[in-house]
């Protein structure tokens, strides 16, 4: 009966990944949205190479943030609606760990694909190679932080009917430091300077979010499931 915490984490993670694999559109939608937003800027503005290059860090980061905000709305919604959360709440396990596993599964299926296609899109924005590697690294550290912060908001709004805009309004301001650091790190690399400073700060934010967000989201889920 006494399940180890590691195996609890893996069981929840595995199941959420399995559910996601059965619904391909849930995986594809955020990436397609990300590509769409990034493609909008050259069309609406000016496709000149040097102009796009200056724009690239900000545009790619904003698009990644928006894609995450859109997909986060679904993080706990189905579990609250179909009663799974009631079951998880009455099991004798630390809820924060369950939340962490679910958030990781969600990031793997929605955040990681966005990170994976970002370098390709960066090429269409004529970004040089070392700026692309910084972009990739900053997204790899930054998007999990966004998912973790978003899990608090997703947990708070999981029981509400209309919550897409509300979620973005609530957690958007909390994610601004990640956006500023991530975009700026890429920008610094673009201008040929050393971006390790902001990357370390991004790492610090990830560590902070890893330790504080799951318990806060667990508290929020208890309220939403009430």
């Amino acid at each position: 009966m006494n399940l180890g915490l590691g195996s609890l984490f893996l069981i929840v993670l595995q199941r959420d990944l399995m559910i996601a694999m059965r619904r391909w559109s849930d995986i594809c939608n955020p990436v397609v949205f990300f590509v769409l937003v990034v493609a909008l800027f050259p069309l609406a503005l000016n496709p000149r190479a040097e102009f796009l290059r200056a724009l690239a860090p900000g545009v790619l980061w904003i698009a990644a943030l928006l894609a995450a905000l859109l997909s986060l709305n679904q993080l706990f919604r189905a579990d609250i609606e179909d009663g799974t959360m009631e079951q998880l709440l009455t099991l004798p396990y630390p809820l924060g760990l369950v939340i962490l596993a679910k958030t990781l599964a969600h990031w793997l299926v929605t955040g990681l694909p966005v990170v994976a296609v970002a370098p390709m899109l960066a090429i269409t924005y004529h970004l040089p190679a070392d700026a692309i590697s910084t972009l990739l690294l900053s997204l790899l550290i930054g998007t999990p932080t966004i998912s973790l912060l978003g899990s608090i908001g997703a947990a708070l709004t999981a029981g509400l009917r209309q919550s897409g805009v509300l979620l973005a309004l609530m957690v958007g301001p909390l994610m601004l430091p990640v956006l500023m650091l991530g975009a700026r790190a890429t920008d610094i690399a673009l201008s040929g300077d050393d971006p390790t400073g902001p990357l370390y700060l991004l790492g610090a934010l990830l560590a902070l979010a890893l330790s504080l967000a799951p318990p806060a989201a667990a508290m929020a889920i208890r309220i939403s499931a009430d």
């Binding site: 399995m18 559910i19 179909d82 004798p92």
Partner: peptide, 19 residues
């Protein structure tokens, strides 16, 4: 002793439609 005490069965059946 860390043992599971409650079995709750509400209106919602906690079944995932895709599994």
């Amino acid at each position: 002793t860390g043992r599971h005490t409650i079995a709750y069965c509400g209106h919602a059946t906690a079944l995932k439609p895709d599994l």
